[in-house]
Design a protein around this nucleic acid. Structure first.
Lengths: 131, 131
DNA sequence: GACAGTGTACTATGTAACTAGTACACTAGG
DNA sequence: CCTAGTGTACTAGTTACATAGTACACTGTC
């Protein structure tokens, strides 16, 4: 599957699953109507407890992004792609803002911060390219 | 005092205190030999439990950044300013890297991410300026 | 009908983080 | 000496998160 979990991320594991499902819908890697991998299958893939995955899916359901298909599984609701794109932008913006705010409060100036961002982006993209 | 705590940051509160003390030393807002505000005073300022502040200070002590002056308080060790500057860069880089990595995995491209960083930096600096 | 695969619900356990409160030894200053 | 202010060291309780295991109702397929 597409998801990757980092246990000591600050972000709770179930929350990481929630975010990455939203991202997958935003990327259109998950289409409306499409069934998600089952709770049990995904928990094996990600080496998580089924309850943790179930909690993530329940939250997505309560947000109106997934819906239950009785006896079949959970499917992506119709017409949520656009909303997921907005959510993705908000989630990423908030997290970046929090990190940038700490950097500013820590006494770094804008130029130093931008340099760090460039360096990290370069490292990350070259990593992905070499995979 | 200089510190500001954000309770739902992902970063544990005691860890935020640890980081901000390091940042203050890196900024030379705290000089070597200088006494820090007392655990009790700081806990009142930040509306935290004294134990939480004590835990942060104990960690800083075990890292060799603060030292006990019996009956007086905790003081910044001599010659740690340079190390704190390195630590500050590492801490901020790691956190930014984590956020940027999520953004890339979420399907945003480098240009979109850079645009978000610029926007957030601009908002944050104009906020600070208007304070 | 039988079975396997769904989501859902429940209780229980363990850990980390934070809070609450108390007690003690030490030092500086009157 | 006495008092107030230090750090330090406990025990306890709460919350959030993750894990472990079990049970149930539903659906699709044979």
């Amino acid at each position: 599957m597409f998801f990757s979990i980092d246990a000591n991320n600050g972000v709770a594991i179930y929350e990481q699953v929630v975010r990455q499902v939203k991202f997958a819908i935003a990327e259109e890697a998950l289409q409306p109507g499409q069934l998600l991998p089952s709770i049990r299958a995904l928990s094996v893939d990600l080496a998580l407890n089924p309850n943790t995955v179930a909690r993530a899916f329940q939250q997505l359901q309560s947000e109106g992004i997934l819906e239950t298909v009785r006896g079949r599984g959970l499917a992506v609701c119709a017409g949520v792609a656009e909303r997921c794109k907005e959510l993705r932008r908000e989630l990423i913006s908030d997290r970046l803002r929090s990190a940038l705010s700490e950097a500013l409060r820590g006494g770094l100036n804008t130029e130093e911060i931008q340099a760090i961002v460039q360096q990290q982006l370069q490292e990350l993209t070259s990593q992905v390219a070499s995979q």
